[in-house]
Simulated scan of single mutants.
Amino acid sequence: MDVIAKSRPETKPYWARCLAIVAVMTSGALLSGCMGGLDLFDDKVDTVRTSAVATSAERLTDEITVRNAVSSADLSHTAGNPIPWANSASGSAGVISTIAENRDTAGRTCRDFVTTKHSYQGIANYSGRTCLGSSGEWLLLAFDLQG
């Protein structure tokens, strides 16, 4: 009578034990590539750099993105509806809640706006002003963080 419920290694065939050892060694070799540079006895310190703090270039691209959204908005069709914007360069996004078109003292067409900015630093409210320049280009004159 053969006992088939035993799990002791000596009851398993030799080829099955070899296959298990090869499988463990292969998986160890493959996974060691995921842990490159792991040296438990090395006194060097690894550093990780993140872009958790926005650079001035990222802020500038956010301002340009908002300016473009405000200046290209068709106010007759938006009728006060929020306008979403997103900047793939910085990962920031937001919603322009209001845009009011008026003329400044120099007679230029200007648009005052209020927007949110969702970024890695959190959510913030901004107000701003963009005006149409003499060359036909919209200029961002203000983009201020609201407290």
Rank of each mutant, 00 (worst) to 15 (best):
S88A: 13
T47H: 15
C18T: 08
V22W: 15
I4Y: 10
D39A: 06
S119W: 02
C131E: 02
L19H: 01
T109D: 05
N125M: 04
K12F: 08
V53Y: 07
G28K: 00
K12Y: 13
G33Y: 02
R67W: 02
S72K: 07
D112E: 08
A57E: 12
S51P: 06
G37D: 01
P9K: 06
R129H: 02
I21L: 15
G94T: 03
L40V: 02
E137M: 14
K44A: 13
G133I: 05
S135T: 15
K6D: 15
K6Q: 09
L40K: 07
S76E: 14
D144K: 14
L60T: 09
G94Y: 13
T26H: 07
G94W: 00
T78W: 14
C110W: 03
V95W: 14
A106Q: 13
R49H: 10
Q121R: 12
Y120R: 13
D43S: 12
S92K: 03
A86M: 07
A5P: 08
A93P: 00
K117T: 09
K44F: 12
S51E: 08
Q146L: 14
R111L: 00
S27C: 12
I123K: 11
S92G: 03
G91M: 04
V22C: 15
V48I: 14
N87C: 14
D46E: 15
D104N: 15
T78H: 05
R17M: 05
T26L: 15
D42S: 13
L19D: 06
T116G: 15
K117P: 01
D144C: 07
I96Y: 00
M35W: 09
V53K: 11
R67S: 03
T115Y: 00
N102D: 14
G136W: 04
T78D: 06
R67K: 15
G36E: 09
G122M: 11
S119Y: 03
W15H: 13
W15P: 07
T105Q: 15
R129I: 04
K44Y: 11
K44I: 06
L30N: 05
T11I: 12
A73Q: 02
G80W: 00
K44C: 07
T55H: 10
S97A: 10
V53R: 11
I83N: 01
T115S: 01
E101K: 05
Q146E: 15
G80P: 01
G128P: 00
I123H: 02
A73S: 06
R67Y: 03
V95C: 04
S71R: 04
Y14K: 07
S92C: 02
C18D: 06
S97I: 11
D62Y: 06
G37L: 03
S88V: 12
A73L: 02
S32T: 04
G36C: 07
V22T: 12
C18S: 08
L60I: 11
W138T: 08
T11L: 11
Y120M: 15
H77C: 08
A93I: 01
R67D: 12
L30Q: 05
Q146W: 06
W85C: 00
D43E: 12
S76F: 04
D39N: 11
T98D: 06
V114Q: 13
L60W: 11
S71G: 11
A20E: 15
I123E: 12
P9F: 11
K12L: 15
T50A: 03
A20Y: 13
W15Q: 14
S119P: 09
W15L: 12
V70S: 00
Y14G: 06
D74G: 04
F143A: 05
A29P: 03
W85I: 01
L40Y: 08
D42G: 07
L140P: 05
